[in-house]
Amino acid sequence: MTRKPASPVVSVQNLSVLFADGSNDASSPGGFHALGPVTFSVCPREFVCVLGPSGSGKSTLLRALAGLVPPTSGEITFSGGERPRIGFVFQQANLMPWRSVLENITLPLEIENQPVHIARQHALELVELVGLQGFEHSLPRDLSGGMAQRVALARALVHDPDILLLDEPFGSLDALTRERMWTELSRIWQVRQKTVIMVTHSISEALFLADRVLVLTARPGRVKMDLKVDLPRPREDEMRYTLHFGRLARRLKEAIE
């Protein structure tokens, strides 16, 4: 699917993150070593999944990419040079409870000072894309987990970000809803042609969605494996019972353990 284009959207060089306020960790005197050093780059429109044991620094990696955590050493370079526009989907939907579905989705455009009618129009398009027609004026408290996460996804896409970062976005959903969301996300990714970096702890989720899977080691996380997922798209449910899927899943499983 993805050829190797000339310039990556983002490249990460020897990125390490240490937290100053961590406990007295004898192994890393400069602070609590949460991540790295890691090096990798992501091509335009590539879908990359990050797998790794819990505590290996996956969230820290995404937060560093979003500019929420400063790198302790190493570098993150984006293709434009400038900080790119980010769409972030958190593990919990993280909606503003006082805003309706539509108002939650318009938030990124409001921050970019877009005119109200333009913001509304874009948000309505996204409502349709994530299949929430009829719920535009509902409040977050009236939504199911799956619906709330769709709103979060719509909000992350509405300002047409350069990179979409997802941190275990479906972790809190039940199995059925989660698998429905995979299909949704892959459809949306194909319609919107975004570069996606998604943290997950599910091997099938990674294989269902990703072009490439990065496996991190236990803390402090380093890239242990960079696996190309050459399964054909669109990926169907049956694909999971193929021999090749099984082989890839097994390699990932062995890398994580």
Binding site: R83, F88, N94, I111
Partner: peptide, 23 residues
């Protein structure tokens, strides 16, 4: 987590106050 959301969207201090902290 809502602060982080606002920061990931590069909200200004004033937007932080108006769109998040006040409500």
């Amino acid at each position: 987590s809502l602060y982080e959301l606002m920061r990931s969207l590069r909200a200004s201090r004033w937007q932080m106050l108006r769109l998040l902290e006040i409500p």
